[in-house]
Computed example of a mutant assay.
Amino acid sequence: MTPTVPPPRTAHPAGRNSRAGGASRGTCAQWYEQELGWATAGSAPVRLLTGLRFDALVVPAAAGHAALERVGRTGPVALTGRRMSLLVAPGSADELPGLLDWLEWGGVALELTALGAGGRITAPPPPGRPGPPGAAVWLRPPCPPHEQEGEPGFPALSGFGSRGGDAPDLIRLVDAVATECHRARLTRARAGLPPRKSAAQPLAFS
């Protein structure tokens, strides 16, 4: 008796991840790569590579929220748990130590991390697409290049100026972030609480 050969199995779509609300790794990565021109890596979750199209300032979420209220509109901002990533122009990570010195923050330990070449951040789902509970989210999503006319780009260091309204966006942003990080650290110290442990290595200057 000739055995019955079962029909071929239907392959699942490549990169399908049921934990991400049915969105595939390919769909998420394609949006960043094709719509924004950003490099990605990994699959669960997708990561955005820093140091190419942008760098990132990573700070405690509370300090980041307070800083954003002070500086107003800025570049894309992502939230992952208790950490906030503020996207800035590529090369900003290299400029940060000197900029903090110029802003007179050089002698202060800050829970502030700059990610440049070789770094990566978790990619939130594209705007309007759901993600799993606890996933990274865009607080200020990026716009595709064809939609960016009249919208702010990545905060950049275009030259040193005063700390007033004519200062470059990166200077205002870094000064506000450093102020709020230091304020949060002092608040915890006064309350007798230890400094929060950061997932990334904070900058410290002696």
Results as ranks from 00 to 15, higher is better:
113 T>V: 15
99 L>P: 03
108 V>F: 11
74 T>N: 10
103 L>H: 12
92 S>N: 04
100 L>D: 07
70 R>N: 02
94 D>Y: 01
69 E>M: 11
78 A>K: 00
91 G>T: 06
114 A>H: 11
80 T>G: 03
84 M>W: 00
112 L>H: 05
107 G>Q: 14
94 D>M: 02
101 D>F: 03
79 L>T: 02
78 A>G: 07
104 E>N: 12
106 G>Q: 03
79 L>V: 09
102 W>N: 02
102 W>P: 00
73 R>G: 09
88 V>L: 05
74 T>H: 12
109 A>M: 04
114 A>P: 10
101 D>E: 14
107 G>H: 15
65 H>R: 14
104 E>W: 11
88 V>E: 02
88 V>K: 04
76 P>L: 05
85 S>W: 00
91 G>W: 07
114 A>K: 08
108 V>I: 15
87 L>S: 02
83 R>L: 12
96 L>A: 04
89 A>S: 14
74 T>Q: 08
69 E>S: 13
114 A>N: 10
65 H>L: 09
73 R>A: 15
84 M>K: 00
96 L>F: 02
84 M>A: 00
100 L>T: 08
78 A>F: 02
105 W>N: 11
87 L>V: 03
85 S>C: 03
97 P>L: 09
107 G>N: 14
90 P>K: 13
70 R>M: 08
76 P>E: 08
79 L>N: 00
89 A>Q: 14
98 G>Y: 06
74 T>F: 10
68 L>T: 02
72 G>I: 08
99 L>A: 13
67 A>L: 01
69 E>A: 15
100 L>P: 04
113 T>N: 04
70 R>Q: 15
86 L>N: 00
76 P>W: 05
72 G>F: 06
77 V>A: 08
80 T>L: 05
76 P>S: 09
102 W>R: 15
78 A>R: 04
